[in-house]
């Protein structure tokens, strides 16, 4: 379970997050949307221990990760969290298979045959077959994204954090990628996704980040505008089950 409480974050004079709270239960699929530059990626990064909030707390499985020393934080990212980024994130000089195996390389052991077999099965699951020895530049954008998803799953994380994973893809590929995430979630992995693809809001619970506050998505992009009135001090804390806490 991820529990974000009263998160605040500023960049210079711009307040990006203002007392944002969110609880994501195990196995939930949470979609966060909002305008560009609204703080969605920042929120996701704080949830994934990639950056620290100016205030508030972040708990994963009841552990306050902001109190963890750096090596333990790195280990937590390695074992519990899989990231899928909005940009092409494969490592250019490594093959497809080596890219997928990277999270194992950053753990405390070297990849073995079982890891290799698992990586190959993950690639098959995301629809990449016969391309293990290719380099990222030899793949299409959609294929690269699939490999990135396989890589995020490599260490069998309990949480996948995806930051606009379909941002630059065509509709068909976008649908395929979203299906992949749905499948991952159905197998019990928690998915928190930042996306503009609101057609898929129905995959789970959706929220809108607006003016530093997080609100339940009401089915229309304009809905949060009205809800945001009154300032962020009123920003409600919401659970992944759709309840205002």
């Amino acid at each position: 379970m991820i529990r974000l409480e009263a998160l605040g974050k500023r960049y210079k004079n711009v307040e990006v997050l203002n007392r944002v709270s969110l609880t994501v239960d195990d196995g939930a699929f949470v979609i966060i949307t909002g305008r560009s530059g609204g703080g969605k990626t920042t929120l996701l990064s704080i949830a994934g221990a990639l950056t620290r909030p100016d205030e508030g707390s972040v708990c994963i499985d009841e552990v306050d990760i902001l109190q963890l020393p750096e090596p333990e934080l790195a280990a937590l990212r390695n074992r519990k969290i899989g990231f899928v980024f909005q940009f092409p994130s494969l490592i250019a000089p490594l093959t497809v298979l080596d890219n997928v195996l990277l999270p194992v390389a950053f753990s405390d052991r070297n990849p073995n045959h079982a890891d290799r077999d698992f990586a190959e099965s993950l690639l098959e699951q995301v629809g990449i077959t016969g391309k293990n020895a290719l380099y990222p530049s030899q793949l299409s954008g959609g294929q690269q994204r699939r490999v990135a998803i396989a890589r995020a799953m490599m260490n069998r994380p309990s949480i996948i954090l995806a930051d606009e994973p379909t941002g630059d893809l065509d509709e068909t590929t976008e649908a395929e990628i979203m299906n992949l995430f749905q499948g991952i979630n159905h197998r019990g992995t928690t998915v928190v996704m930042v996306t503009h693809a609101l057609d898929y809001a129905g995959l789970g619970r959706a929220y809108v980040l607006k003016n530093g506050g997080l609100l339940p998505y009401a089915g229309s992009a304009l809905a949060p505008e009205a809800s945001a009135q009154g300032g962020n001090a009123l920003a409600p804390a919401v659970s992944a089950q759709g309840e205002v806490l």
Binding site: A74, A75, N78, R79, S89, I91, L102, F106
Partner: peptide, 16 residues
């Protein structure tokens, strides 16, 4: 920089 950020996101610690 981005590559190193990605490594960190995948669990590479500062020491590594």
């Amino acid at each position: 920089m981005r590559e190193i950020g990605l490594f960190m996101a995948m669990g590479a610690g500062r020491g590594l």
